[in-house]
Write a protein that binds this DNA or RNA. Structure first.
Length: 490
RNA sequence: CGGAGUGUGGCGUAGUCUGGUAUCGCGCCUGGUUUGGGACCAGGAGGUCGCAGGUUCAAAUCCUGUCACUCCGACCA
């Protein structure tokens, strides 16, 4: 019944189709820029509201900094600039005018900006320019700010949600009086993201740090959470960075210490983006369409009436009204689809495509026995149950689906985790199954580069809680104490 | 940014090689019958064939350029 190509047949086509057909988003006329449609945006809004609470609970305040950043700001931190230079959109003019023939429109050469402006690829620079004015004393610290914003990174190759030229995100930027406090902040935010990913998205992750090659430009340490998609490719879904004093030095942000002397401020930043929606899709969904975890589903229960005439519909609607009201009073997001020009079968397929966790359908048959037909999207199981029973069970069912999705995802992820001791196995597993491959690495950039060139696998992370046993590098055979996760990734 | 491919009513497509005013399905509108897994019948509307040039009596079709998408590569926090 599915109108999607199967995952097995063509995974990336399946992904594109699911985004379009479940009406999450579509391409716009501009390369790499997507239109997030209401249903997709509703998921983002759910994510935002949960994350926003978490950020506030950890002491962050929301603020907003400009989209446009003076070019000079970006060039102050050299590493940072080098990291982003190749993908920045630049504003050079501030005015248009008609062409001489009046048929078209052109840049007005007289409106050329004295200093060109960069469309932010991230906001560290403009924020640290402000922190310089805001911070004088240790009493001004820490500062914990967050902003919900769009950023633009001119990507060569884009995919809906996973890598778009413009995307939405949350970026946290903090300033601290000590190195230790800043590191703790970066670690704390990684825990927040892990909590969000596992308990709300039902997506299991590996926590770790990035290798020097993969590190955020401008960071001393990048922490990340990595998730595994159903096709065996890894996806980084959240990062936090310990920025050391790189930005405070670049922007000259010093504070007076409690007992005399001045010190550069210690910094962190962190972020998650609309890419999370890509992770959500690729973790849970199946060949029938989207599967959404109840905690983030815009619609948790869909009610579909089945009737032969208006009189029947009236009778059914009496029960529907009671059920809907009850569910909504218990905080369950419920929709009643009463469209008359679509058949029940059409609606079944539609809401399966859209990943609605629970569906109840009611016809005269059910009404007469005070029943509903209950369907759960995660297992595709159908059953009859009494209306009272359903109302009693609904919150528990949603909770159960949430848990089952996590456990199922964990099982799939674990089935894609391997440990290897030699390079032959490394390549074999990578080609046959993909997944996370845990192996010893000698810690050199050369080895990392060779492995990437030969296999396309990169070091996804150095896990936070790895054992300290020693081994031998899977590539060079040199003694190593670093066991890391390799994977091909998005 | 390099290589390959695609672009035809809202969506999916035939036609392109071999130039002659666009095919089919879905959807949409009207009316009726329907409604338990993407309903049926009848009637109807909708396309300057991505865009811009060129060749030609004539271009969806040939040529050039350009934009977008897909795949591969490079790039990617």
């Amino acid at each position: 019944m599915s109108s999607l190509i199967s995952r097995k047949e063509n995974y990336s086509k399946w992904y594109n189709e699911i985004v379009i057909k479940s009406e999450l988003a579509e391409n716009s006329g501009i390369r790499g820029c997507m239109i997030i449609k209401p249903y997709g945006f509703a998921i983002w809004e759910k994510m935002q509201s949960v994350l926003d609470k978490m950020l506030k609970q950890t002491g962050h305040e929301n603020a907003y900094f400009p989209t446009l950043i003076p070019k000079s700001y970006l060039s102050k931190e050299t590493n940072h600039m080098e990291g982003f230079a190749k993908e920045c959109a630049v504003v050079t003019h501030c005015r248009l005018k008609n062409t001489p023939d009046g048929k078209e429109i052109m840049l007005d050469p007289k409106s050329r900006l004295e200093e060109e402006l960069i469309v932010r690829p991230t906001s560290e620079t403009i924020i640290w320019d402000s922190y310089r004015r805001w911070i004088q004393s240790y009493r001004d610290l820490p500062i914990l700010l967050n902003q919900w914003a769009n950023v633009v990174r001119w990507e060569m190759r884009t995919r809906l949600f996973l890598r778009t030229s413009e995307f939405l995100w949350q970026e946290g930027h903090t300033a601290h009086a000590s190195r230790e406090e800043a590191i703790e902040e970066a670690k704390k935010m990684l825990r927040v993201y892990t909590n969000f990913s596992e308990n709300f998205m039902a997506v299991p992750v590996i926590q770790g740090t990035k290798s020097e090659t993969e590190r955020f430009s401008g960071a001393e340490e990048t922490y990340c959470i990595e998730a595994m998609m159903q096709d065996g490719k890894a996806l980084q879904i959240g990062t936090s960075h310990f920025l050391g004093q790189n930005f405070s030095k670049a922007f000259d942000v010093k504070f007076s210490k409690q007992f005399g002397g001045k010190e550069y401020v210690w910094a962190t930043s962190c972020g998650v983006s609309t890419r999370l929606i890509g992770a959500l899709i690729m973790t849970h969904s199946d060949d029938y369409g989207l599967v959404l975890p109840p905690k983030l589903a815009p619609i948790q229960v869909i009610i579909i009436p089945i009737y032969r005439n208006h009189e029947q519909l009236r009778i059914i609607e009496k029960s529907v009204t009671i059920i809907k009201k009850y569910l909504e009073n218990h905080g369950i997001r419920t929709k009643y689809d009463y469209q008359n020009h679509k058949t029940p079968g059409w609606k079944f397929n539609e809401y399966e495509m859209k990943g609605v966790p629970l569906r109840i359908s009611m016809g005269i048959r059910e009404i007469e026995k005070n029943q509903v037909e209950l369907f759960r999207r995660d297992t595709m199981e159908k059953q009859l149950c009494s209306q009272n029973e359903f109302l009693r069970l609904a919150p528990k069912l949603l909770e159960d689906i949430q848990n089952k999705l996590y456990n199922r995802a964990l099982k799939k992820r674990n089935a894609l985790m391997f440990h290897v001791n030699n390079y032959e196995d490394f390549k074999k597993i990578l080609d046959n199954k993909g997944g996370f491959i845990s192996a010893y690495w000698d810690g050199t950039i050369e080895t990392e580069k060779k492995i990437k060139e030969e296999t396309k696998a990169t070091i996804r992370c150095i896990p936070l809680n790895s054992d300290t046993k020693k081994g031998y590098c899977v590539y060079s055979g040199k003694p190593s104490s670093k066991k890391v996760f390799f994977a091909r990734s998005y």
